[in-house]
């Protein structure tokens, strides 16, 4: 469904609900020259940069918060092996909104007075016809395929996040095609039991894939927390790469991207015991409710 040179949209938020299972599949077949439009991102972007798959990146953040203030390989390669179209969260949302509403642009405050004007080739100044100071015109962004991770969906593609849904509904509305990977495909009756929980209706979804533990190593709401040990393992790999040693990265890619033939193979490579220990709460946190 995705070709070299396509624009993909990635849902989730930093280290929560990132559609890693799908992204690993994309990495395995080395789809490249991608333009990536993403909500605040975790280290999946760092790995895609390391593999040379991203041509242009539009995301407000790449890092893992307390685990990593910034993605190391992304930080090293920015402007060199890929181009950044600088954006903050609201400006990104405004691009999606313009696309959803089929508008040529929407005005925004965010970039006014900042370096976004020089670091994002898409932004222009626009006069306020009502006499106020100039604003920034944010154009629509076209997304070929959006990739989203959520808790549940039925076979028709009615999606329920059962928690915050981030920019995912906007991404789904803005994209030409939408692929949703879910922890569990549930019956239509199950969805109908609580239609208020449906965050993306089936009319906007092209395909649903059952991918249990498919957000690993990021967290999946209501299912498991983020695997900080795995993120730290990756960070060691990334830091070695930045210092000029590519062997650890090659090993990581072989072990977690290329050798596993499917999601089950990946989970085995991580280790089932580790996976199953990623229950929602750590025991020490359970006393105070």
């Amino acid at each position: 469904m995705i070709n070299n040179g396509d624009t993909i949209g990635i849902g989730g938020f930093v280290t929560t609900n990132k559609p890693w299972a799908f992204l690993r599949a994309l990495m395995r077949v080395r789809k490249k020259d991608l333009t990536v439009v993403a909500s605040p991102s975790g280290l999946e972007i760092d790995l895609m940069v390391a593999m040379g798959l991203i041509k242009t990146l539009m995301t407000p953040y790449v890092g893992a918060e307390a685990i990593a203030p910034v993605g190391p390989i992304y930080s090293k390669q920015a402007g060199k092996s890929f181009t950044i179209e600088e954006t903050d969260l609201m400006t990104l949302a405004t691009m999606l909104r313009a696309r959803i509403q089929a508008l040529p642009f929407l005005p925004a405050w965010g970039p006014v007075g900042t370096s976004l004007m020089e670091l994002n080739s898409k932004l222009r100044w626009v006069e306020d016809p009502f006499g106020g100071p100039p604003l920034v015109a944010v154009p629509p962004v076209k997304i070929d395929v959006a990739i989203i991770h959520a808790c549940h969906a039925d076979k028709y593609g009615n999606v329920q996040h059962l928690g915050p849904c981030f920019l995912d509904p906007m991404l789904a509305q803005a994209a030409e095609k939408v692929i949703v990977q879910v922890e569990k495909i549930v019956s239509n009756e199950e969805i109908r039991r609580n239609p208020l929980a449906t965050t993306i209706p089936c009319q906007q979804v092209t395909a649903v894939v059952q991918a249990p533990y498919g957000a690993h190593p990021s967290a999946s709401q209501n299912y498991y927390r983020l695997d900080d040990v795995h993120y730290r393992e990756y960070l060691k790999v990334a830091k070695a790469f930045v210092e000029g040693d590519q062997t650890l990265l090659k090993d990581y890619i072989a072990r977690y991207i290329d050798q596993p033939k499917d999601l089950a193979g990946y989970l085995e490579a991580v280790g089932m015991e580790k996976i199953l220990n990623l229950g929602l709460e750590e025991c020490s946190d359970a006393g105070n409710t």
């Binding site: 407000p60 953040y61 992304y74 930080s75 402007g79 600088e86 903050d88 969260l89 900042t114």
Partner: peptide, 16 residues
């Protein structure tokens, strides 16, 4: 911007 000494994590939500 093509030869940064250090690339930061990005503006997150702060510009707006």
């Amino acid at each position: 911007p093509r030869q940064l000494k250090f690339r930061g994590p990005g503006p997150v939500g702060t510009s707006t």
